[in-house]
Design a protein around this nucleic acid. Sequence first.
DNA 1: AGCCAGGCTAAGA
DNA 2: TCTTAGCATGGC
Length: 283
Amino acid sequence: MEVTMCNFHLGHTLECGQAFRWRRLAGGSYEGVIGRTVVHATQTGDRLMLSGAPAGTLADYFQLHEDIAAIVRTFPNDPHMRRAVAFGCGMRLLRQDPWECLASFICSAAKQFVQICQVVDNLCRTLGEPLKADGRTGFAFPSAAAVARATHEQLWSCKMGFRAKNLLATARMVDSDKVRLETIAAMDYPRAVEELMKLPGVGPKVADCALLFGWGRQEAFPIDVWIERALRHLYFAGQRRVTRRRLVEFHRSYFGPYAGYAQQYLFHYVRNNPQSLIAAPRK
DNA sequence: AGCCAGGCTAAGA
DNA sequence: TCTTAGCATGGC
């Protein structure tokens, strides 16, 4: 499918750290896997070309109905957010498969983006179903059942280290319906977090990532080392003893109805402009 | 060589 | 309730 869109930036969208299965090809296009299809994506100016999956699937994954400009207007109008929005202009949150998202972020703990991509790729090659269409090949992300059936050694061979134990235990709990992912969508946010945190390897940060990127919950505001640094340096500069709880109270009251979106713009900005955290501008 | 990475967990104050 | 070491691995 081809769509013409303003305020869309494929590169920022696919490389901001929310998804781990996209590769930039020579020429600037991207190849990735959505569900059971290998997808190709290219942007030329305002024209976005997507192929490999049904239009409805693509529109949902890329959330093409969302008006990013309108969302950005709800962000607090402070210098840091203005810089973050200017830097990542056109970035949008994807709607990923909840299980894939949850499992991927279990593997993400204390790893860098490039390395997470590698681990997830290893996992798909080891346990995922091979895909083939239009000459393009790939692997589906393995279902919870498939991971639950795997051995610890198989997961270990994917280079996920101590996270292997957590992923295996979580897959078994999901596969045996000890935690039912289908019920998460109907829960309010605190209840959903509580439910997801029953799973091994899922703490507040991973739960928030899954809820934001997999379930589209805008209340979710993942606090990783970078966002914590950003909040402390940009919004609590010079203040000592700012507790974690204080940061949570702050972001819940400050970032507005699209807090999850604001978080991702901030994250993408500070990750790519670490100097912004060294000399934090006061105004 | 040593530190850090989109953390979580259990143990101890 | 808050802080900390340990957990694997790789890049710098």
